[in-house]
Computed example of a mutant assay.
Amino acid sequence: MRIIDAHQHFWDLEANYLPWLTDKPVNFRYGDYDAIKKSYLPADYRQDAQEFELAASVFIETEWDPTDPLGEVAWVNSLRKRESLPSVMVAQAWLDRDDAESVLAAHGQTDFVRGIRHKPKAASAPGDVVPGAPGSMGDPAFRRGFSMLAANGLSFDLQTPWWHLPEAADLAEAYPNTQIIINHTGLPADRSDDGLAGWRAALMRAAECPNISIKISGLGQKGKPWESAENRPIIRDTIEIFGADRCMFASNFPVDSLVGTFSTIFNGFRDAVEDFTPGEQQALFHDNAARIYRIDPTREV
């Protein structure tokens, strides 16, 4: 199957500064991240993805040195020239910073940058959401930066827990010309009945907005391997809510190598939609990412 991987990363820890991987022990939602505190480059990625025919990939910013968002773009450009990967990029920008206007203008003038990612401030639980909190999607400073995306031809990759997706819907309705792409399936980490009910309701609210799409990725659970039986219902529910024309499959490699191999994850995706039509499968694995991230077919590898 020919695939476009809609969410992947590269990093060279010997040459570049990624504070989250180099400054302190990493212990995020998958637990101990020590196994990925090493450089990960196109040769490593091609080895991981060798079972599949890789058409293109979308590089997502890696929380590079926040004082130098344009430095990561220059580094990715050198990778593209040398390795023909990645195909396109979602770059770092801080929408509530004073330099947002100049950074977004620079990204908009870079031919392989398709959008930006800025992780808004998030509450730790559904009941703790404070509307308009500084750094959140309701913050006027955040919205000022967000308002500049469309004019620069940029989309917005959104990584936030599902309980902030109603805010994302409000943002999408206020700026209907800006494409929003939810990362990692809205982070359905709580697999209890109540947790999944809240996640589904939040996805339904986001799906009301035609300018919101979603990447099915990041489905690992702390301390557990990636399993089709556990993730198939999540995959199916997401596609039912958003439709097969607004969902994309993605590896989140190398981060998700902590919970499964590339083959385990993509074969799990394939098994979950084995009864879908060939056209729907083509959309989920390739065409939607090509359209949403505006990938030139001549750049397919």
Results as ranks from 00 to 15, higher is better:
Trp163Asn: 01
Leu165Thr: 02
Pro166Ala: 12
Glu167Gln: 14
Ala169Ile: 04
Asp170Cys: 02
Asp170Ser: 14
Ala172Ser: 13
Ala172His: 11
Glu173Gln: 14
Glu173His: 13
Ala174Met: 12
Tyr175Ile: 05
Asn177His: 14
Asn177Asp: 15
Asn177Thr: 11
Asn177Phe: 05
Thr178Cys: 08
Thr178Phe: 13
Gln179Glu: 15
Ile180Asp: 01
Ile182Lys: 12
Ile182Asp: 06
Ile182Trp: 01
Asn183Ser: 14
His184Gly: 02
His184Leu: 11
His184Lys: 04
Thr185His: 08
Thr185Asp: 05
Gly186Lys: 05
Gly186Met: 05
Leu187Val: 04
Leu187Gly: 04
Pro188Ile: 02
Pro188His: 03
Asp190Glu: 07
Arg191Ala: 10
Arg191Gln: 14
Ser192Arg: 04
Ser192Glu: 12
Ser192Gly: 09
Asp193Gly: 02
Asp193Trp: 00
Asp194Arg: 15
Gly195Met: 07
Leu196Phe: 10
Gly198His: 10
Gly198Leu: 08
Gly198Val: 03
Gly198Cys: 11
Trp199Glu: 02
Arg200His: 05
Arg200Leu: 07
Arg200Glu: 14
Ala201Phe: 03
Ala202His: 00
Ala202Thr: 01
Leu203Met: 14
Arg205Val: 13
Ala206Ile: 03
Ala207Val: 10
Ala207Tyr: 03
Glu208His: 06
Glu208Ala: 12
Cys209Ser: 14
Pro210Asp: 15
Pro210Leu: 13
Pro210Phe: 11
Asn211Ser: 09
Asn211Gly: 11
Ile212Trp: 07
Ser213Leu: 00
Ser213Asn: 10
Ser213Gln: 05
Ile216Phe: 02
Ile216Leu: 10
Ile216Thr: 10
Ile216Met: 03
Ser217Glu: 10
Ser217Gly: 04
Gly218Tyr: 11
Leu219Thr: 09
Leu219Trp: 09
Gln221Trp: 01
Gln221Pro: 00
